[in-house]
């Protein structure tokens, strides 16, 4: 089985600051890390690797420094990293990004399974995974909390719903977006880290993907960011203080008072 996992580099959320004038994220001096929600599809892939010896490739699209997230993926146990990087990709929206990643997966494929995180914590769109599936014309299941093999060419997948979950059987190839409920990601290993340092990721340019200029980057993006606003938070909160017993009593009262218990 060949598995592709798409990952993204995002600013470390422990140190998030917004430029008050442009309302954009200040990225200078902020460490970049692997999108935390991408660790769950990586772990899903690595468990399939442990179980049946699947070959796992991590893909990321971004500037050269995005290679850092591939280093982490390989340190966790992924077999290879692919950096899809070209000036022509600058300014891509979710359509152009998913098209570019889908193309890279197609060129290096075929892959039996494509895994993505629910969304990236910086853009929060949750569109790229489904976009890749659409461009590749393969089935997709989002909000996945469990994955099991079902014979040689299908998976049994649990999908989280508003009021429960659904168990689905999906033939391969397919694309899944995996939620944090699915697993507990492993820590990178020493051998993995050394392997990542030994073998830099494979780089793929626009030319190698065979994508015409008008289909990538800003030109290939049908959407534009017109304005960015910092959301106003007006949630009310009450702080319950005191010892454990009296706090628990107060909390119980509050919950009962609102008819929640």
């Amino acid at each position: 089985m060949k598995i592709a996992v798409c990952v993204k580099q995002v600013p470390d959320t422990a140190d998030l600051r917004i430029n008050p004038e442009t309302n954009t994220l200040i990225r200078e001096g902020v460490e970049s890390v692997l999108n935390p929600l991408d660790e769950f599809p990586l772990e899903t892939a690595l468990r399939l690797k442990d179980a049946i010896g699947a070959h796992v490739t991590a893909f990321t699209m971004g500037p050269p420094q995005a290679a850092g997230v591939l280093e982490k993926a390989v340190a966790m146990g992924v077999d290879a990293g692919v950096l899809v990087s070209d000036r022509a990709f600058a300014g891509s929206d979710t359509w152009a990004t998913s098209l570019t990643l889908a193309k890279a997966i197609e060129v290096l494929g075929p892959f039996d399974l494509v895994l993505c995180g629910k969304q990236a914590v910086d853009g929060d769109t949750a569109q790229v995974g489904p976009g890749i599936a659409a461009h590749l014309r393969i089935p997709q299941i989002t909000y996945v909390t469990a994955v099991e093999l079902d014979g040689d060419s299908a998976l049994r997948v649990t999908r989280l719903l508003d009021n429960g979950s659904a168990v689905l059987r999906v033939p391969l190839p397919a694309m899944l977006t995996v939620l944090k409920e699915a697993n507990e990601p492993r820590l990178p290993t020493i051998s993995g880290r050394l392997a990542a340092w030994r073998t830099p990721p494979r780089q793929m340019s626009a030319e190698e993907l065979g994508l015409p200029a008008g289909e990538t980057g800003l030109d290939g993006s049908p959407t534009r960011v017109v304005r960015i606003a910092v959301p106003e938070t007006n949630r009310q909160h009450t702080r319950i203080e005191g010892n454990a017993e009296s706090s628990a009593e107060r909390l119980l009262c509050e919950l009962r008072g609102r008819g929640l218990l």
Partner: peptide, 8 residues
Amino acid sequence: CWSAMERE
């Protein structure tokens, strides 16, 4: 054996 570099 584990190795850790990032903050998380």
